[in-house]
Design a protein around this nucleic acid. Sequence first.
DNA 1: GGATAATACTGCCAATGGCAGTAAAAACGT
DNA 2: ACGTTTTTACTGCCATTGGCAGTATTATCC
Lengths: 198, 198
Amino acid sequence: MAKPLTTTSNALLGLLSIQPWSTYELAKQVDRSLGWFWPRTERKIYDEAKKLVESGHATAKLQATGSRPRTVYKITAKGRRTLQAWLDESSAPPKLEAEALVRVFFANAGTLDQLRTTLDDLAAQSRANMDELRVLIATADDADYPFAERRHINAIAIRFQLDYNQMISDWAEWATAQTDSWNDITDPNSWDWHSALT
Amino acid sequence: MAKPLTTTSNALLGLLSIQPWSTYELAKQVDRSLGWFWPRTERKIYDEAKKLVESGHATAKLQATGSRPRTVYKITAKGRRTLQAWLDESSAPPKLEAEALVRVFFANAGTLDQLRTTLDDLAAQSRANMDELRVLIATADDADYPFAERRHINAIAIRFQLDYNQMISDWAEWATAQTDSWNDITDPNSWDWHSALT
DNA sequence: GGATAATACTGCCAATGGCAGTAAAAACGT
DNA sequence: ACGTTTTTACTGCCATTGGCAGTATTATCC
Protein backbone atom coordinates (compact mmCIF):
# COMPACT_ATOMS: atom_id res chain seq x y z
CA MET A 1 0.00 0.00 0.00
CA ALA A 2 1.56 3.25 -1.15
CA LYS A 3 1.47 6.30 1.10
CA PRO A 4 -1.33 8.72 0.25
CA LEU A 5 -0.13 11.77 -1.63
CA THR A 6 0.22 15.09 0.14
CA THR A 7 -2.02 18.00 -0.75
CA THR A 8 0.95 19.56 -2.51
CA SER A 9 1.39 16.45 -4.66
CA ASN A 10 -2.28 16.40 -5.53
CA ALA A 11 -2.20 20.10 -6.33
CA LEU A 12 0.62 19.49 -8.81
CA LEU A 13 -1.37 16.60 -10.29
CA GLY A 14 -4.17 19.11 -10.70
CA LEU A 15 -1.95 21.41 -12.71
CA LEU A 16 -0.66 18.49 -14.78
CA SER A 17 -4.25 17.41 -15.43
CA ILE A 18 -4.62 20.61 -17.45
CA GLN A 19 -1.54 20.08 -19.61
CA PRO A 20 2.11 19.03 -19.40
CA TRP A 21 4.42 21.62 -17.90
CA SER A 22 8.09 22.02 -17.17
CA THR A 23 8.99 22.41 -13.52
CA TYR A 24 9.69 26.06 -14.03
CA GLU A 25 6.27 26.54 -15.58
CA LEU A 26 4.62 24.62 -12.74
CA ALA A 27 6.33 26.94 -10.29
CA LYS A 28 5.08 29.95 -12.26
CA GLN A 29 1.52 28.65 -12.12
CA VAL A 30 1.82 28.19 -8.38
CA ASP A 31 3.07 31.75 -8.16
CA ARG A 32 0.29 33.19 -10.27
CA SER A 33 -2.78 31.28 -9.20
CA LEU A 34 -2.53 28.07 -7.16
CA GLY A 35 -0.35 29.88 -4.65
CA TRP A 36 -3.21 32.14 -3.61
CA PHE A 37 -4.56 29.31 -1.53
CA TRP A 38 -1.72 26.78 -1.65
CA PRO A 39 1.55 28.70 -1.60
CA ARG A 40 4.66 26.61 -2.19
CA THR A 41 8.18 27.64 -3.10
CA GLU A 42 9.80 26.92 -6.44
CA ARG A 43 12.34 24.83 -4.58
CA LYS A 44 9.63 22.50 -3.36
CA ILE A 45 8.06 22.11 -6.78
CA TYR A 46 11.31 20.73 -8.21
CA ASP A 47 11.40 18.00 -5.56
CA GLU A 48 7.69 17.27 -5.72
CA ALA A 49 7.64 16.77 -9.47
CA LYS A 50 10.39 14.16 -9.16
CA LYS A 51 8.40 12.36 -6.50
CA LEU A 52 5.36 12.19 -8.77
CA VAL A 53 7.45 10.36 -11.34
CA GLU A 54 8.82 7.93 -8.75
CA SER A 55 5.31 7.08 -7.59
CA GLY A 56 4.06 6.62 -11.15
CA HIS A 57 1.65 9.57 -11.16
CA ALA A 58 3.56 11.44 -13.84
CA THR A 59 6.22 10.88 -16.47
CA ALA A 60 9.22 13.09 -17.13
CA LYS A 61 10.52 13.96 -20.57
CA LEU A 62 13.96 15.52 -20.88
CA GLN A 63 14.16 18.25 -23.47
CA ALA A 64 16.68 20.94 -24.23
CA THR A 65 16.82 24.57 -25.27
CA GLY A 66 20.26 24.70 -26.85
CA SER A 67 22.52 23.22 -24.23
CA ARG A 68 20.17 24.03 -21.38
CA PRO A 69 18.16 21.01 -20.33
CA ARG A 70 14.59 21.07 -19.13
CA THR A 71 12.22 18.46 -17.78
CA VAL A 72 8.61 18.38 -18.89
CA TYR A 73 6.12 16.44 -16.78
CA LYS A 74 2.98 14.73 -17.94
CA ILE A 75 0.25 13.14 -15.84
CA THR A 76 -0.36 9.38 -16.15
CA ALA A 77 -3.66 7.49 -16.03
CA LYS A 78 -2.81 6.53 -12.46
CA GLY A 79 -2.25 10.19 -11.68
CA ARG A 80 -5.69 11.11 -13.00
CA ARG A 81 -7.32 8.36 -10.98
CA THR A 82 -5.53 9.49 -7.84
CA LEU A 83 -6.55 13.09 -8.38
CA GLN A 84 -10.17 12.25 -8.99
CA ALA A 85 -10.27 10.11 -5.83
CA TRP A 86 -8.60 12.88 -3.84
CA LEU A 87 -11.43 15.23 -4.76
CA ASP A 88 -13.73 12.99 -2.72
CA GLU A 89 -11.79 13.42 0.49
CA SER A 90 -12.75 16.04 3.01
CA SER A 91 -10.59 19.15 3.21
CA ALA A 92 -8.50 20.35 6.11
CA PRO A 93 -9.80 23.65 7.45
CA PRO A 94 -8.22 26.74 5.89
CA LYS A 95 -5.10 27.88 7.67
CA LEU A 96 -4.19 31.54 7.84
CA GLU A 97 -0.78 32.88 8.74
CA ALA A 98 -0.87 36.64 9.16
CA GLU A 99 2.13 38.28 10.76
CA ALA A 100 0.31 41.62 10.66
CA LEU A 101 -2.47 40.21 12.84
CA VAL A 102 0.09 39.00 15.37
CA ARG A 103 1.43 42.55 15.55
CA VAL A 104 -2.10 43.84 16.03
CA PHE A 105 -2.77 41.25 18.72
CA PHE A 106 0.28 42.34 20.70
CA ALA A 107 -0.03 46.04 19.91
CA ASN A 108 -0.31 46.59 23.66
CA ALA A 109 3.45 46.12 23.87
CA GLY A 110 4.06 49.05 21.52
CA THR A 111 2.51 52.32 20.44
CA LEU A 112 -0.66 53.42 18.73
CA ASP A 113 1.43 54.64 15.80
CA GLN A 114 2.98 51.22 15.37
CA LEU A 115 -0.47 49.67 15.28
CA ARG A 116 -1.71 52.16 12.69
CA THR A 117 1.31 51.59 10.48
CA THR A 118 0.79 47.83 10.60
CA LEU A 119 -2.87 48.26 9.67
CA ASP A 120 -2.13 50.73 6.86
CA ASP A 121 0.49 48.45 5.33
CA LEU A 122 -1.88 45.50 5.44
CA ALA A 123 -4.67 47.44 3.76
CA ALA A 124 -2.28 48.67 1.08
CA GLN A 125 -1.05 45.13 0.37
CA SER A 126 -4.59 43.86 -0.04
CA ARG A 127 -5.53 46.69 -2.36
CA ALA A 128 -2.43 45.99 -4.45
CA ASN A 129 -3.40 42.32 -4.67
CA MET A 130 -6.81 43.31 -5.94
CA ASP A 131 -5.26 45.50 -8.62
CA GLU A 132 -3.23 42.52 -9.80
CA LEU A 133 -6.33 40.36 -9.86
CA ARG A 134 -8.10 42.86 -12.06
CA VAL A 135 -5.23 42.74 -14.53
CA LEU A 136 -5.50 38.97 -14.52
CA ILE A 137 -9.23 39.11 -15.16
CA ALA A 138 -8.62 41.35 -18.14
CA THR A 139 -6.30 38.77 -19.71
CA ALA A 140 -9.04 36.13 -19.45
CA ASP A 141 -11.12 38.42 -21.65
CA ASP A 142 -8.76 37.88 -24.56
CA ALA A 143 -10.17 35.82 -27.41
CA ASP A 144 -7.00 33.68 -27.44
CA TYR A 145 -7.09 32.94 -23.71
CA PRO A 146 -5.66 29.40 -23.67
CA PHE A 147 -7.74 27.94 -20.85
CA ALA A 148 -11.26 28.72 -22.02
CA GLU A 149 -12.55 25.42 -20.57
CA ARG A 150 -11.37 26.57 -17.14
CA ARG A 151 -13.01 30.00 -17.24
CA HIS A 152 -15.93 29.16 -14.96
CA ILE A 153 -13.79 27.50 -12.31
CA ASN A 154 -11.22 30.27 -12.54
CA ALA A 155 -13.96 32.85 -12.08
CA ILE A 156 -15.12 31.13 -8.89
CA ALA A 157 -11.57 31.01 -7.55
CA ILE A 158 -10.77 34.59 -8.49
CA ARG A 159 -14.00 35.73 -6.87
CA PHE A 160 -12.70 34.16 -3.66
CA GLN A 161 -9.45 36.06 -3.96
CA LEU A 162 -11.25 39.33 -4.55
CA ASP A 163 -13.56 38.81 -1.58
CA TYR A 164 -10.68 37.70 0.62
CA ASN A 165 -8.57 40.75 -0.13
CA GLN A 166 -11.53 43.06 0.08
CA MET A 167 -12.38 41.68 3.51
CA ILE A 168 -8.85 42.28 4.76
CA SER A 169 -8.56 45.84 3.50
CA ASP A 170 -12.05 46.68 4.76
CA TRP A 171 -11.21 45.30 8.18
CA ALA A 172 -7.86 47.10 8.33
CA GLU A 173 -9.47 50.41 7.41
CA TRP A 174 -12.24 49.85 9.93
CA ALA A 175 -9.71 49.01 12.64
CA THR A 176 -7.70 52.14 11.91
CA ALA A 177 -10.86 54.21 12.20
CA GLN A 178 -11.63 52.63 15.57
CA THR A 179 -8.31 53.78 16.97
CA ASP A 180 -9.20 57.40 16.28
CA SER A 181 -10.97 57.77 19.58
CA TRP A 182 -8.35 55.95 21.63
CA ASN A 183 -6.09 57.98 23.91
CA ASP A 184 -3.18 55.62 23.53
CA ILE A 185 -2.57 51.95 22.92
CA THR A 186 -3.53 50.87 26.43
CA ASP A 187 -6.40 53.32 26.91
CA PRO A 188 -9.30 53.05 24.46
CA ASN A 189 -11.05 55.94 26.20
CA SER A 190 -14.82 55.49 26.01
CA TRP A 191 -14.60 53.17 23.01
CA ASP A 192 -17.18 50.40 23.25
CA TRP A 193 -15.57 47.08 22.47
CA HIS A 194 -18.92 45.36 22.60
CA SER A 195 -20.44 47.37 19.80
CA ALA A 196 -17.50 46.41 17.57
CA LEU A 197 -18.61 42.79 17.79
CA THR A 198 -22.25 43.02 16.85
CA MET B 1 25.14 39.76 16.54
CA ALA B 2 22.39 37.37 17.55
CA LYS B 3 20.03 36.02 14.94
CA PRO B 4 16.73 37.90 14.74
CA LEU B 5 13.87 36.03 16.35
CA THR B 6 11.30 34.28 14.20
CA THR B 7 7.71 35.45 14.11
CA THR B 8 6.80 32.44 16.23
CA SER B 9 9.34 33.47 18.88
CA ASN B 10 8.04 37.01 18.90
CA ALA B 11 4.48 35.77 19.12
CA LEU B 12 5.37 33.79 22.24
CA LEU B 13 7.08 36.85 23.66
CA GLY B 14 3.82 38.64 23.04
CA LEU B 15 1.93 36.10 25.13
CA LEU B 16 4.58 36.27 27.85
CA SER B 17 4.31 40.07 27.85
CA ILE B 18 0.78 39.61 29.22
CA GLN B 19 1.76 37.32 32.07
CA PRO B 20 3.94 34.29 32.86
CA TRP B 21 2.61 31.00 31.52
CA SER B 22 3.55 27.36 31.59
CA THR B 23 4.26 25.79 28.21
CA TYR B 24 0.98 23.96 28.31
CA GLU B 25 -0.85 27.21 28.96
CA LEU B 26 1.03 28.92 26.16
CA ALA B 27 -0.04 26.14 23.82
CA LYS B 28 -3.66 26.55 24.96
CA GLN B 29 -3.54 30.26 24.23
CA VAL B 30 -2.20 29.54 20.76
CA ASP B 31 -5.04 27.10 20.29
CA ARG B 32 -7.72 29.49 21.47
CA SER B 33 -6.67 32.83 20.05
CA LEU B 34 -3.20 33.39 18.63
CA GLY B 35 -3.61 30.35 16.42
CA TRP B 36 -6.37 32.02 14.43
CA PHE B 37 -3.71 33.94 12.55
CA TRP B 38 -0.51 32.24 13.69
CA PRO B 39 -1.24 28.53 14.08
CA ARG B 40 1.54 26.51 15.68
CA THR B 41 1.48 23.03 17.18
CA GLU B 42 1.90 22.34 20.88
CA ARG B 43 5.04 20.40 19.99
CA LYS B 44 6.61 23.51 18.56
CA ILE B 45 5.72 25.67 21.56
CA TYR B 46 7.70 23.39 23.87
CA ASP B 47 10.83 23.81 21.76
CA GLU B 48 10.33 27.52 21.20
CA ALA B 49 9.94 28.35 24.87
CA LYS B 50 13.27 26.68 25.60
CA LYS B 51 14.91 28.71 22.87
CA LEU B 52 13.61 31.94 24.39
CA VAL B 53 15.41 31.06 27.61
CA GLU B 54 18.63 30.22 25.78
CA SER B 55 18.58 33.57 24.03
CA GLY B 56 17.82 35.47 27.22
CA HIS B 57 14.35 36.67 26.25
CA ALA B 58 12.64 34.69 28.98
CA THR B 59 13.41 32.85 32.19
CA ALA B 60 12.14 29.41 33.17
CA LYS B 61 11.01 28.46 36.65
CA LEU B 62 10.57 24.80 37.45
CA GLN B 63 7.56 24.06 39.61
CA ALA B 64 5.70 20.91 40.50
CA THR B 65 2.16 19.70 41.02
CA GLY B 66 2.75 16.74 43.28
CA SER B 67 5.39 14.73 41.48
CA ARG B 68 4.50 16.15 38.09
CA PRO B 69 6.91 18.91 37.06
CA ARG B 70 6.01 22.00 35.09
CA THR B 71 7.97 24.88 33.65
CA VAL B 72 6.68 28.42 33.91
CA TYR B 73 8.17 31.05 31.61
CA LYS B 74 8.51 34.75 32.28
CA ILE B 75 9.59 37.47 29.87
CA THR B 76 12.80 39.39 30.61
CA ALA B 77 13.52 43.09 30.07
CA LYS B 78 15.47 42.07 26.96
CA GLY B 79 12.42 40.14 25.79
CA ARG B 80 10.23 43.22 26.15
CA ARG B 81 12.70 45.37 24.24
CA THR B 82 12.90 42.80 21.45
CA LEU B 83 9.12 42.57 21.19
CA GLN B 84 8.63 46.31 21.10
CA ALA B 85 11.27 46.65 18.37
CA TRP B 86 9.67 43.81 16.41
CA LEU B 87 6.40 45.73 16.29
CA ASP B 88 8.20 48.32 14.17
CA GLU B 89 9.13 45.89 11.45
CA SER B 90 6.97 45.45 8.41
CA SER B 91 4.83 42.33 8.21
CA ALA B 92 5.03 39.53 5.69
CA PRO B 93 1.86 39.36 3.59
CA PRO B 94 -0.84 37.07 4.97
CA LYS B 95 -0.51 33.49 3.79
CA LEU B 96 -3.56 31.35 3.26
CA GLU B 97 -3.53 27.56 2.96
CA ALA B 98 -6.92 26.25 1.94
CA GLU B 99 -7.13 22.67 0.80
CA ALA B 100 -10.80 23.18 -0.03
CA LEU B 101 -9.88 25.91 -2.52
CA VAL B 102 -7.40 23.57 -4.19
CA ARG B 103 -10.21 21.06 -4.65
CA VAL B 104 -12.40 23.79 -6.09
CA PHE B 105 -9.63 24.91 -8.42
CA PHE B 106 -9.24 21.41 -9.83
CA ALA B 107 -12.91 20.51 -9.70
CA ASN B 108 -12.67 20.01 -13.47
CA ALA B 109 -11.03 16.66 -12.77
CA GLY B 110 -14.04 15.43 -10.82
CA THR B 111 -17.78 15.86 -10.65
CA LEU B 112 -20.17 18.66 -9.88
CA ASP B 113 -21.30 16.75 -6.78
CA GLN B 114 -17.76 16.59 -5.48
CA LEU B 115 -17.46 20.34 -5.93
CA ARG B 116 -20.70 21.02 -4.11
CA THR B 117 -19.72 18.76 -1.21
CA THR B 118 -16.40 20.55 -0.85
CA LEU B 119 -18.16 23.92 -0.83
CA ASP B 120 -20.82 22.81 1.65
CA ASP B 121 -18.24 21.43 4.07
CA LEU B 122 -16.25 24.63 3.89
CA ALA B 123 -19.29 26.79 4.58
CA ALA B 124 -20.27 24.56 7.51
CA GLN B 125 -16.78 24.80 9.01
CA SER B 126 -16.82 28.58 8.82
CA ARG B 127 -20.23 28.82 10.40
CA ALA B 128 -19.07 26.52 13.22
CA ASN B 129 -16.04 28.75 13.78
CA MET B 130 -18.32 31.75 14.09
CA ASP B 131 -20.42 29.97 16.68
CA GLU B 132 -17.30 29.32 18.73
CA LEU B 133 -16.30 32.95 18.44
CA ARG B 134 -19.67 34.06 19.76
CA VAL B 135 -19.18 31.85 22.81
CA LEU B 136 -15.79 33.43 23.32
CA ILE B 137 -17.25 36.92 23.08
CA ALA B 138 -19.78 36.02 25.74
CA THR B 139 -17.00 35.05 28.17
CA ALA B 140 -15.40 38.47 27.74
CA ASP B 141 -18.64 39.91 29.04
CA ASP B 142 -18.05 38.41 32.47
CA ALA B 143 -17.24 40.88 35.20
CA ASP B 144 -14.25 38.78 36.27
CA TYR B 145 -12.76 38.51 32.78
CA PRO B 146 -9.05 38.42 33.60
CA PHE B 147 -7.73 40.42 30.65
CA ALA B 148 -9.81 43.57 30.85
CA GLU B 149 -6.86 45.68 29.69
CA ARG B 150 -6.79 43.65 26.48
CA ARG B 151 -10.48 43.96 25.67
CA HIS B 152 -10.14 46.60 22.96
CA ILE B 153 -7.35 44.77 21.15
CA ASN B 154 -9.14 41.46 21.50
CA ALA B 155 -12.27 43.00 20.06
CA ILE B 156 -10.36 44.18 16.98
CA ALA B 157 -8.82 40.74 16.50
CA ILE B 158 -12.08 38.88 17.03
CA ARG B 159 -13.79 41.23 14.58
CA PHE B 160 -11.23 40.05 12.02
CA GLN B 161 -12.02 36.43 12.74
CA LEU B 162 -15.74 37.03 12.40
CA ASP B 163 -15.32 38.88 9.11
CA TYR B 164 -12.90 36.27 7.81
CA ASN B 165 -15.22 33.34 8.52
CA GLN B 166 -18.24 35.23 7.29
CA MET B 167 -16.46 35.98 4.02
CA ILE B 168 -15.62 32.32 3.50
CA SER B 169 -19.09 30.99 4.22
CA ASP B 170 -20.69 33.71 2.10
CA TRP B 171 -18.40 32.90 -0.79
CA ALA B 172 -18.95 29.16 -0.48
CA GLU B 173 -22.71 29.60 -0.47
CA TRP B 174 -22.52 31.97 -3.41
CA ALA B 175 -20.34 29.51 -5.33
CA THR B 176 -22.75 26.66 -4.67
CA ALA B 177 -25.59 28.80 -5.97
CA GLN B 178 -23.62 29.55 -9.14
CA THR B 179 -23.32 25.87 -9.94
CA ASP B 180 -27.11 25.50 -10.03
CA SER B 181 -27.27 26.51 -13.65
CA TRP B 182 -24.30 24.42 -14.77
CA ASN B 183 -24.95 21.27 -16.79
CA ASP B 184 -21.92 19.48 -15.41
CA ILE B 185 -18.50 20.28 -14.10
CA THR B 186 -17.03 21.03 -17.54
CA ASP B 187 -20.07 22.73 -19.01
CA PRO B 188 -21.29 25.87 -17.26
CA ASN B 189 -24.12 26.19 -19.76
CA SER B 190 -24.93 29.87 -20.34
CA TRP B 191 -23.38 30.95 -17.06
CA ASP B 192 -21.60 34.27 -17.43
CA TRP B 193 -18.21 34.08 -15.78
CA HIS B 194 -17.63 37.75 -16.38
CA SER B 195 -20.60 38.87 -14.33
CA ALA B 196 -19.28 36.84 -11.39
CA LEU B 197 -16.25 39.12 -11.29
CA THR B 198 -17.83 42.52 -11.24
C1' DG C 1 27.22 44.52 -27.65
C1' DG C 2 26.51 44.56 -22.87
C1' DA C 3 23.29 44.51 -19.02
C1' DT C 4 19.23 42.43 -17.24
C1' DA C 5 15.59 39.11 -17.00
C1' DA C 6 13.89 34.55 -17.69
C1' DT C 7 14.68 29.67 -17.63
C1' DA C 8 16.54 25.50 -15.19
C1' DC C 9 18.31 23.22 -11.40
C1' DT C 10 20.75 21.51 -6.74
C1' DG C 11 22.70 21.63 -1.90
C1' DC C 12 22.11 22.65 2.71
C1' DC C 13 19.95 23.74 6.86
C1' DA C 14 16.35 25.86 9.82
C1' DA C 15 11.39 25.88 10.84
C1' DT C 16 7.46 23.26 11.41
C1' DG C 17 3.89 19.51 11.70
C1' DG C 18 2.26 15.05 12.83
C1' DC C 19 2.23 11.21 15.41
C1' DA C 20 3.38 8.05 18.98
C1' DG C 21 4.69 7.41 23.54
C1' DT C 22 5.04 8.31 28.69
C1' DA C 23 3.15 9.85 32.97
C1' DA C 24 0.85 12.22 36.86
C1' DA C 25 -3.04 14.94 38.63
C1' DA C 26 -7.77 16.43 38.33
C1' DA C 27 -12.49 15.90 37.30
C1' DC C 28 -16.38 13.25 36.73
C1' DG C 29 -19.84 9.63 37.00
C1' DT C 30 -22.06 6.09 39.60
C1' DA D 1 -15.01 4.81 47.05
C1' DC D 2 -13.53 3.34 42.49
C1' DG D 3 -12.83 3.40 37.81
C1' DT D 4 -12.84 6.25 33.59
C1' DT D 5 -11.93 10.27 31.15
C1' DT D 6 -9.84 14.68 30.75
C1' DT D 7 -6.30 17.79 31.66
C1' DT D 8 -1.63 18.83 32.39
C1' DA D 9 3.31 18.06 31.04
C1' DC D 10 6.84 16.59 28.13
C1' DT D 11 10.10 14.10 24.51
C1' DG D 12 11.68 11.47 20.27
C1' DC D 13 11.54 10.86 15.54
C1' DC D 14 10.77 11.76 10.90
C1' DA D 15 8.43 14.02 6.83
C1' DT D 16 7.23 18.49 4.91
C1' DT D 17 8.48 22.90 3.75
C1' DG D 18 10.93 27.46 3.25
C1' DG D 19 14.81 30.31 2.54
C1' DC D 20 18.97 31.26 0.72
C1' DA D 21 23.06 30.66 -1.93
C1' DG D 22 25.15 28.95 -5.87
C1' DT D 23 25.60 27.55 -10.93
C1' DA D 24 24.43 27.90 -15.91
C1' DT D 25 22.30 28.93 -20.29
C1' DT D 26 19.12 31.50 -23.22
C1' DA D 27 16.20 35.48 -24.24
C1' DT D 28 15.20 40.25 -24.10
C1' DC D 29 15.95 44.97 -23.85
C1' DC D 30 18.39 49.26 -24.55
